[in-house]
């Protein structure tokens, strides 16, 4: 596949947003808010950077992508369908018995998924293990991980943060989807995290802060990560939970709630789908 242009990535993200709304509406469950906040980054990573083979999802020397915030699975499934790892029909299996699209992304169920998520605070450590493996193998493959901002409240994240720097894992790349909202309420209410970039800097990571919905900035950040080879790199992406659907944007109610029939019509209309 040739390199996708910025406008092509933006169009891919728009299509994925439509699928996220449809999937959660169909299931009447799931997590649309965090899927919509992460989706621009996922599209850029898959469309522009990850060395993966859709015909051979288990290719040993592939780059890894670990969605640690595994509840935001609709976003990942939408991207995997766009990339051809699964079919668009598979998206209808989201949260359905026997479906490849389990409630949380699962490497045992879905082609193209490298990590069985569901419990917050686990993906960065797993990604570190993949990065250590690549180093021992003498491979140039990278391990990309995405966590949420609320997820940083898990102590195990900081075990991994300290450990990855100690081991100078330049092949470990992290995105933090900072959408400012967690399950019960805004992060500012639940557990203030204060200066997030400073925390990662103080652990020794290379840090960059971007607008997580500006495709130019996202692509620039991915290219910046390529230049960091002596330590792990983190991109702090400021995002909007529910981005692209007005009534979901910055609304804690849509962390884990599906749109109603009427809301779906409105959402799809806002995303450019004619009724």
């Amino acid at each position: 596949m040739g390199e996708m242009s910025i406008s092509e990535l933006e169009e891919m993200a728009r299509k994925c947003r439509i699928e996220i709304c449809k999937m959660t509406h169909r299931a009447q469950a799931g997590h649309p808010g965090g899927s919509l906040s992460e989706i621009d980054i996922l599209c850029a990573l898959y469309g522009r950077r990850l060395r993966v083979q859709t015909s051979n999802p288990k290719w040993e020397d592939r780059d890894r992508f670990i969605l640690s915030k595994g509840h935001a699975s609709p976003g990942m499934y939408a991207v995997l369908a766009e990339m051809g790892f699964i079919s668009h029909a598979d998206l209808e299996s989201y949260r359905v018995k026997g479906g490849v699209c389990q409630g949380h992304v699962d490497m045992k169920w879905c082609p193209g998924v490298d990590f069985s998520a569901g419990s917050l605070g686990m993906g960065l450590s797993f990604g570190m293990g993949c990065a250590v493996a690549a180093r021992i193998d003498g491979s140039s493959r990278n391990s990309y991980v995405m966590i949420g901002d609320g997820e940083m409240q898990e102590g195990s994240i900081w075990e991994a943060a300290m450990s990855a720097v100690h081991h100078e894992l330049g092949n470990l790349k992290l995105f933090v989807d900072c959408n400012g909202i967690q399950n019960d309420d805004f992060c500012e209410v639940q557990m203030r995290m204060f200066d997030i970039p400073a925390k990662w800097s103080s652990f020794g990571w290379a840090v960059k802060v971007i607008d997580g919905h500006n495709m130019n900035e996202i692509v620039g950040a991915i290219e910046w990560m390529d230049t960091i080879s002596d330590r792990p790199a983190v991109v702090i992406a400021n995002t909007v939970k529910g981005k692209g659907v007005s009534f979901m944007e910055n609304n804690p109610a849509f962390h884990g709630a599906a749109p109603s029939d009427e809301q779906l019509v409105q959402a799809l209309s806002e995303l450019g789908v004619s009724a």
Binding site: E60, R64, M107, D114, F115, G121, M122, S125, F126, G127, M128, G129, C130, A131, V132, A133, A134, I136, D137, S143, G155, S156, E159, A160, M162, S163, H166, H167
Partner: peptide, 26 residues
Amino acid sequence: PERTISCGIGEQNMLLVGAGLASSGF
């Protein structure tokens, strides 16, 4: 030493680093 990974006093991280290694064929 090249195949020994010190995880410090961090057992939660250690088990998942192990999981990542296992998923990569180690």
